[in-house]
Structures are given as C-alpha cells and as structure tokens.
Design a binder for these strands. Structure first.
Length: 274
DNA sequence: CGTTAGCCCTGCTGGC
DNA sequence: TGCCAGCAGGGCTAAC
C-alpha cells in the first residue's frame, strides 16, 4: 500500500525524468480514475502543459504544471506509477487506467488493480484549500515533539487511529503506524492524549526514523507496490512487527499479536509496547 | 467538534 | 480440486 515512503520514492525517481517535459497526449482506458471529470475534458486540460516540478504532500504526488495548475495523483491501495521511454516496451496492459505521453520523451503509466486510485487536475486557486485539509508533514523539521504533543493533547482515540488520520499527520498508513509504534515501544490502543512527554518524544523520533529508513529502502512491497522503475521496495524485508503475527518479537522474543483497531489490522508486541 | 461505521473495488485466502 | 464468503484498507461521507 503506497504510503509516504513509497510516494516519495516515486517522486524522486520521476523528478528528473518528467521535469521540463511537455504533455503530448493523454489516454484513459478507465475513466473512473479521472472521475468526476470526463476523460475528454481531462485530456484537453493537460495537453500542451509543461511539467514544472514534482512535489509530494502526504500520500499525494503532485505534478506542478506551467500556468499554475496541478495534476494530483493518489495511488490508494494498489496504484502503480511507472515511466518508460518507449511506449511499446510496455506490454503489460493489465489494470492500465491512465497513460500520459510525453511524445518522444517517454510516457507515464498508471496501473491500479483495485481501481481506488485517482488523478485530478487542480486549478491554481483550488490547490491551497485541497491540501489544507491535510495535517503535518512528518519529515519536516517543523514536525517537533512539541507540535506533536499539542496535536495529541486531550484526544481519546487509540494512537493507531490517530496516526493514520491524514488530517492530523499526512502520509502515515497502516504499515508505518505499526512500525513506528513498535519502535517507540507504545501500545496501539493507548489513548492519544495519554502519552508522557518522554513517550511523545520517542514517538516523534520513531515516526521520522521509520519513514526515513523506508525511503532509503525504496518503500515496502507486500503485494502490488512497485517503484517508478517497476522494481519492488525492500523495507518489507526488515519489518519488525507488521504482518508478523505469531512470530517472535525482534525485541524480546515474545509472540507478536494481531488485533483490529479502527477496522485496521494492527500488529504489536504486548510485552514491549506499553 | 471528535469520532466511527460503511462504502467503494478486485484478487487472494481459507474453509469446506 | 473447486467453490465462494470473507478479508485487505485509504479516504470520503453520513451519522452519532
């Protein structure tokens, strides 16, 4: 499931490939990806636009266009975004939803098995309101223990639910919430507002360290995730806790447990996480 | 306002 | 071996 580390990996890989290129053509095999905008209108608004820069906000990949608009892509559960220089090198048409063609400069292919992924075009005035709904960027310096403490204060919901709420912190999903909580040695069911100052500091550091390590390993490929070159990530090879139910905890040797929190499968060590 | 349940969707898994 | 209900979950909306 593409979360912040996966989207950031793709952003870094695509940056040099797409920046400065002009969109030549748009093909939309599955109109649900651009809905509610009809495919024709979507293509018309993109053709001729130049990619000025690639940025990321939470789990959104943002292609900044000349003229001030923006193409915003969200991969949701099973979205895969790859770049190929030669159109015909892509023989895999399975689950293909959207192709953005840069003429002789290659093409961007958006595939999505479960069809939750989206691509939207934002006008300049729509950009700020759209992203203002999102919470803090966890890898920015401004994401400090103090800021996190203020955000957690007086909230009663389970920490796990808090961490995956995109309006609080943007970019953390199910995998990295579990891994960060294990690293911080805090139980996923603890009420968000119940953490001590020391625990908030640990959680802050754990979030940053977990995300940074995952980016350094090109993200996690459990099932469908691939980077922009079509390669698997490697962070799943060093999962400490996620998807390890029944296995020994890497910290104490006890047994990793799985519970449901807010409808999400949640993995933790009852001995290490208090 | 804070929080949660249900929905979207398709492919895989597990039980019989 | 074959079948199919159930599960997976990010983000949105409705509802409490």
């Amino acid at each position: 499931m593409p979360e912040l580390p996966e989207v950031e990996t793709i952003r870094r890989q695509l940056e040099s490939l797409l920046t400065g290129k002009t969109i030549h053509g748009v093909s939309i095999p599955d109109p649900s990806v651009t809905a509610p905008l009809p495919p024709r209108a979507f293509g018309r608004r993109l053709r001729g636009k130049k990619i000025k820069a690639l940025s990321r906000r939470g789990k959104y990949l943002r292609l900044e266009l000349d003229g001030g608009g923006m193409l915003v892509i969200h991969l949701r559960m099973t979205g895969v975004l790859t770049f190929a220089r030669k159109y015909d090198k892509i023989s895999e048409r399975r689950h293909l939803r959207l192709v953005i063609d840069f003429g002789g400069g290659g093409a961007l292919f958006f595939r999505d098995q479960r069809r939750f992924g989206t691509a939207a075009i934002l006008e300049p005035e729509e950009i700020k309101p759209f992203f203002d709904r999102l919470g803090l960027e966890p890898l920015e310096r401004s994401f400090s223990p103090d800021i996190l403490a203020k955000l957690l204060a007086s909230r009663k919901r389970p920490l796990k639910s808090f961490l995956i709420d995109q309006s609080m912190i943007a970019g953390i999903g199910n995998i990295y919430a579990d891994e960060a909580l294990f690293r911080a040695r805090i139980h996923p069911l603890r009420p968000a507002g119940s953490l001590s100052t020391a625990e908030v500091r640990r959680l802050n550091r754990a979030i940053k360290a977990t995300l940074a390590e995952a980016i350094s390993l090109a993200g996690s490929s459990i099932d469908t995730y691939r980077d922009a070159r079509g390669r698997r990530g490697r962070f799943q090879e060093v999962f400490r806790i996620h998807r390890r139910a029944g296995e020994p905890c890497p910290g104490c040797g006890g047994t990793v447990r799985k519970i449901k929190v807010g409808g999400r499968g949640t993995y933790f060590c009852p001995a290490c996480q208090k």
